[in-house]
């Protein structure tokens, strides 16, 4: 390492301390949930569990894994994330490329951008949304979770901004070499924007993985629920003023905080595993460094 001034040294120390503390602050709640998931139900109900399991047990995990719905819904989720992210990314790139052009090069761009952008702001609400999806025949199929949200407008806008930041010389050089728009997009823009693409891929994946409401409303059978929809039916709070006489046995499930914690943790786990992998693409300026001014 090169020489550091004392001021710089101090800054580095403070900076590391600060960020590590901040990370811990973000990590602790998850640890709490993890501890809860390994604790006995009685300890959890009494609020004894902090950051370490009380009366260690793996019951909740056995309970969760034993449920056939759990594994089935994981499979639906995996399909959804893979297909959905793929569709999202293809459309995002396809839209971001032309829309990143100057008005001179693509006259309609501003008009298009606004057409897309307005969809972020205005929506007709649940009922018409459901009816359109129903009339297009998607109900109760995995495509109902993918097609209606196929265009992630926020991501398109992000990416088009990144595309605009790329050196114009590259694009021009590409055209001079006789490449068309498709080749330029694929050979120049995409490889140069890997960090941005990785970011957007992450968002698309997380979006698909986390959304639950559409699954509940658009699927006609719980067998087709993705994981988060399924978890929602388990974790959702029971309205205790409505506990009905018909099934006192349900009450046992109300206190099942530990298995809920286990389910939350398992729900977050896959994304936690994928994220560090995606970070490989965040390496600063790998490609840009090789570009001549």
């Amino acid at each position: 390492m090169q020489y550091m001034t004392p001021g710089r040294r101090l800054f580095v120390i403070v900076n590391y301390t600060l960020l590590i503390l901040l990370s811990l602050l973000c990590l602790l709640p998850l640890i709490h949930v993890l501890a809860l998931s390994f604790s006995s139900s009685a300890a959890a109900t009494a609020g004894y569990v902090k950051f370490w399991p009380v009366e260690f047990t793996t019951n909740s995990y056995q309970f969760v894994l034993k449920k056939p719905e759990f594994l089935a819904s994981v499979w639906v989720s995996v399909q959804r994330v893979v297909l959905g992210t793929l569709v999202n990314m293809v459309l995002t790139v396809l839209l971001a490329y032309p829309l990143s052009k100057e008005v001179k090069a693509f006259r309609m761009r501003t008009f298009y951008v606004w057409i897309f952008f307005l969809t972020i702001l205005f929506s007709g609400g649940l009922i018409p949304w459901y009816m359109v999806i129903k009339e297009t025949g998607l109900l109760n199929s995995i495509w109902a979770l993918i097609i209606p949200g196929a265009v992630p407008v926020f991501n398109v806008i992000l990416l088009l901004n990144f595309f605009r930041g790329l050196p114009k010389e590259l694009e021009e050089a590409s055209f001079i070499d006789g490449a068309g728009h498709w080749t330029t997009m694929w050979r120049i823009f995409v490889p140069l924007s890997l960090p941005a693409l990785a970011t957007i891929t992450l968002f698309a994946m997380v979006g698909h993985w986390n959304s639950w409401f559409d699954g509940l409303i658009l699927m006609n059978s719980p067998d087709n629920y993705p994981l988060q929809s399924y978890l929602q039916t388990v974790v959702i709070r029971r309205d205790l003023s409505l506990v009905s006489q018909s099934s006192l046995a349900d009450l046992a499930n109300v206190s099942d905080r530990t298995s809920k914690a286990a389910q939350i943790f398992m729900g977050a786990l896959p994304i936690l595993l994928v994220y560090p992998f995606l970070q490989r693409f965040f390496m600063k300026g790998i490609v840009l460094g090789s570009v001549k001014e």
């Binding site: 459309l91 396809l94 839209l95 490329y97 032309p98 829309l99 309609m108 298009y112 057409i115 897309f116 969809t119 205005f122 929506s123 007709g124 609400g125 009922i127 018409p128 949304w129 009816m131 359109v132 999806i133 297009t136 097609i147 209606p148 949200g149 196929a150 265009v151 407008v153 398109v156 728009h181 997009m185």
Partner: peptide
């Protein structure tokens, strides 16, 4: 390049806006 996305948006975003 714009058309596939545009069609989807028109159907699934502008369609429901009638609501």
């Amino acid at each position: 390049m714009v058309i596939p996305g545009l069609i989807l948006v028109l159907i699934y975003h502008y369609g429901p806006m009638a609501g």
